[in-house]
């Protein structure tokens, strides 16, 4: 393993939410990314997402003609835009800029008008058309008296009836006076940089989950942060820069690392 994981852990100590003027940012090193999807699965598990609600997702492109083909996998998530069109256009301010520059969503204020979904140029906001995880309500067994059922698994795992989530749901997600591990019908939801983890001094799940250590996370207003180090070393890109939303998610280097000058770690022509 690289020393990246050690520096990321050290990063944690200096990155807290409560400081004034903390500007959280993520950098994705595309050369390290192998397009494995561990981030997507980890995020789905962390946030108790049902199918189709992936906060952490991907843009995949194949270009060229055989045998000169290039394939690029770009991990995506909410860009936590500094100038967030979703928050601006939210009539109830359910979407609003919060601590650390995170675009937060207060689901109790959300009226499900979907303006944010229209405004977001990245399609990173998802609507709950129904209460989540309906398949986990089922009492049907594939084989009667032989296999379990969704309900039976939840019972066995000690998960309450009123929890609209799988038996393995994460209880630490968005907890309030009564637990709300999932959202519900009629409101939207989106990535919030795992604010529930940040508050416990843990990195966002996708950052921790990535086995390639391709995600770097930290405070841009801290001159010593790894995030700033990486951003200074390479030429960062953002998605749809011309939309002017000022994303907090940056990309460096190239997924097709083969275009690099070997042994130097320096970008080749593609960067």
């Amino acid at each position: 393993m690289s020393s990246e994981s050690e520096s990321l852990d050290a990063e944690l100590e200096t990155t807290t939410l409560d400081g004034e003027g903390v500007d959280l940012s993520m950098v994705i090193d595309l050369q390290r990314c192998t397009g494995c999807g561990a981030c997507n699965i980890g995020c789905a598990q962390e946030n108790n997402l049902q199918e189709g609600m992936a906060y952490s997702s991907r843009i995949i492109e194949t270009n060229g003609e055989f045998p000169n083909v290039s394939y690029e996998y770009t991990p995506t998530l909410c860009n936590q835009c500094d100038d967030a069109p979703c928050a601006e256009g939210c009539p109830t301010s359910a979407l609003h800029k919060g601590k650390g520059g995170i675009t937060m969503h207060d689901h109790e204020t959300c009226i499900g008008c979907k303006s944010c979904m229209i405004n977001c140029p990245y399609d990173e906001i998802h609507l709950n058309e129904e209460d989540p995880h309906p398949t986990w309500e089922s009492e049907e067994a594939t084989i009667e008296s032989g296999t379990a059922s969704a309900r039976a698994v939840k019972d066995r795992a000690g998960v309450d009836d009123d929890v609209d989530a799988p038996a393995y749901y994460n209880p630490n997600r968005e907890v309030s006076e009564t637990e709300h591990p999932t959202r519900y019908k009629g409101i939207v939801e989106k990535c919030n940089f795992c604010v529930h983890r940040l508050e416990r001094d843990e990195l966002p799940r996708c950052v921790e989950e990535c086995p390639c250590e391709a995600r770097i996370f930290g405070d841009r207003n801290d001159p010593d942060s790894t995030v700033n180090e990486v951003l200074a070393k390479y030429n960062p890109d953002v998605l749809k820069a011309d939309e002017g939303t000022e994303p907090s998610v940056n990309y460096v280097r190239d997924y097709n690392g083969g275009s690099y000058e070997r042994g130097t770690g320096e970008p080749g022509l593609g960067d």
Partner: peptide, 21 residues
């Protein structure tokens, strides 16, 4: 602590409603 994505699928296998009981 680095694990490939398949390790997490094990959790859905463990709690799979289609498991034989």
């Amino acid at each position: 602590t680095n694990d490939c994505p398949r390790q997490d699928l094990g959790i859905q296998q463990l709690y799979d409603p289609d498991r034989i009981t």
